[in-house]
């Protein structure tokens, strides 16, 4: 086995890797979520953030209230037609790379509010990366969703390339 000069000098204390992977690894373990909490699901998110379920175990406890500082948008709750332009604007204000998690039946599909006022799923307005089922989802489901995003985040290049190729056109994009 060939021994390189660096290994002789530094031993185990140095890992060589690609810059992209190093950044992705750092991002994966410190996602900054923005909570677009509108309804019941937001109350369950409060549980996710509190002691028992403790989202900080996954490095995502720095909840930002400015989309400009966040890289993960969690939509927790029903989004009505009246709310839709606001959601779209918040999504646009986030900087790349950004991730969207749609939590709960209402955000995913309108849930059982199939009526004149409720948007039938936020993916009519903005692209979504991970959907979480439940009405509302249990805190464990929120954490599962977060872990899925982290998995995508760990090797983002391929996924993001694919995502940027499919041009998203929502109902509010003129």
């Amino acid at each position: 086995m060939a021994v390189t000069t660096e290994e002789v000098i530094f031993g185990d204390s140095v890992i060589t890797t690609k810059l992209d992977s190093a950044i992705a690894w750092a991002r994966e373990s410190s996602m900054w979520p923005y909570i677009f909490g509108t309804a019941c699901c937001a109350i369950e998110f409060m549980s996710v953030a509190s002691s028992k379920f403790d989202i900080s175990r996954f490095g995502a406890e720095v909840v930002r209230f400015s989309p400009r500082q966040a890289d993960l948008l969690i939509i927790a709750g029903t989004v009505s037609y009246k709310q839709a332009p606001i959601l779209k604007r918040i999504y646009e204000q986030m900087t790349e790379p950004k991730w969207v998690m749609s939590a709960g039946a209402c955000a995913c599909s309108g849930g059982f509010y199939d009526n004149y006022t409720t948007l039938q799923g936020i993916d009519e307005i903005i692209p979504v990366d991970v959907y979480i089922a439940g009405c509302p989802p249990r805190p464990e489901a929120f954490l599962e969703g977060l872990m899925q995003i982290q998995k995508l985040q760990a090797k983002p290049t391929k996924y993001l390339k694919k995502r940027s190729k499919q041009e998203f056109k929502g109902k509010l994009d003129a």
Binding site: Y81, A84, P85, I86, D114, N115, Y116, T117, L119, L172
Partner: peptide, 18 residues
């Protein structure tokens, strides 16, 4: 006016501006 009986329940209307 959505609560009128002749307004269909699923007829949603997009909102573009606040």
């Amino acid at each position: 006016h959505p609560l009128r009986k002749d307004y269909p329940i699923t007829k949603g209307q997009l909102c573009t501006k606040t």
